[in-house]
């Protein structure tokens, strides 16, 4: 499988992250290509989620977090951007579906409204477009005023994807988006990712190696160092990493010898 090299969307350079005195990420450097799916795999506690949450500065919510090094989005430093503007550009889908206790419509319209869209017709248009984008429209078009919490787990997760799409992000971060879902719903999310990557850059953290192998174009393998800090072992095209890993450690992990 050959892939044309895509321009870099997110560029991470010698990135370190500390929770107080504890170092959670150590000297991570990686380029994330535009309009591709990059999977992050690795054993529990290796800092995968922390790394993902660095891209939209979700870690800022935790006190005493310090970072060193750079993350660039389209060659602008993340920490120079206004946090609201950054999060509009970099959306996120969480591990457990977390629709708000509001109607389906209001869930999707939440982001656009927060960013100042008041016009009703425009909102309707955005909601329909986003729900179609998340492959949920046909299932919910007649029950838009029902609570988002009334949907099934898989539908809730697609609602959360639609909610993220509604603010027209450039990047979508997914933190183990299918780990709380059944196999059928998981498959639907993976199919959806394939259509989404035409317009969005996707970074997904997953526990599930089959999922990374099936659904991603690039894979990055993280591990925990002696001092328990997470570091990047290797990364490359998914095909190469799974078939022909450069590092012994990667081979051990993907063949299930540890982790």
């Amino acid at each position: 499988m050959t892939q044309k090299t895509k321009p870099t969307k997110l560029s991470v350079k010698n990135f370190n992250l500390f929770y107080g005195n504890f170092q959670a990420l150590q000297e991570v450097s990686i380029d994330i290509p535009t309009h591709r799916i990059t999977a992050i795999i690795g054993p529990s506690g290796c800092g995968k989620s922390t790394f993902l949450r660095s891209f939209n500065r979700m870690n800022d919510l935790i006190p005493n977090v310090k970072t060193k090094g750079q993350i660039l989005i389209d060659s602008h430093n993340l920490y120079d951007l206004d946090i609201v503007a950054l999060r509009k550009r970099v959306g996120m889908v969480f591990q457990r579906p977390n629709p708000f206790p509001k109607s389906i419509f209001d869930n999707v319209a939440f982001g656009p409204r927060a960013h100042g869209v008041r016009d009703k017709l425009k909102l309707q248009e955005i909601v329909e477009h986003s729900l179609r984008g998340a492959a949920l429209w046909e299932e919910v078009k007649d029950i838009l005023d029902k609570s988002g919490l009334a949907l099934s787990g898989g539908q809730q997760q697609r609602l959360c994807i639609a909610r993220a799409l509604a603010v027209e992000p450039e990047v979508i971060l997914m933190d183990e988006p299918a780990s709380a879902l059944d196999p059928v719903a998981t498959l639907r999310i993976e199919e959806l990712m394939q259509t989404l990557k035409e317009h969005y850059t996707i970074v997904i953290v997953t526990h599930n190696m089959q999922q990374a192998a099936r659904a991603s174009d690039y894979t990055a393998f993280f591990n925990m160092a002696e001092n328990r800090a997470g570091y990047l072992v290797e990364h490359g095209s998914t095909n190469q990493l799974f078939v022909n890993p450069k590092e012994k450690l990667t081979e051990d992990y993907i063949t299930g010898r540890f982790g």
């Binding site: 969480f94 977390n98 409204r113 960013h115 603010v167």
Partner: peptide, 22 residues
């Protein structure tokens, strides 16, 4: 739940919007 707050902030809502609307 914390997940509501995070969900709202991740959409680029401000802290005040998060508190008031979610």
């Amino acid at each position: 739940p914390r997940a509501y707050r995070e969900g709202s902030l991740a959409l680029g809502a401000t802290k005040w919007q998060t508190i008031w609307q979610v």
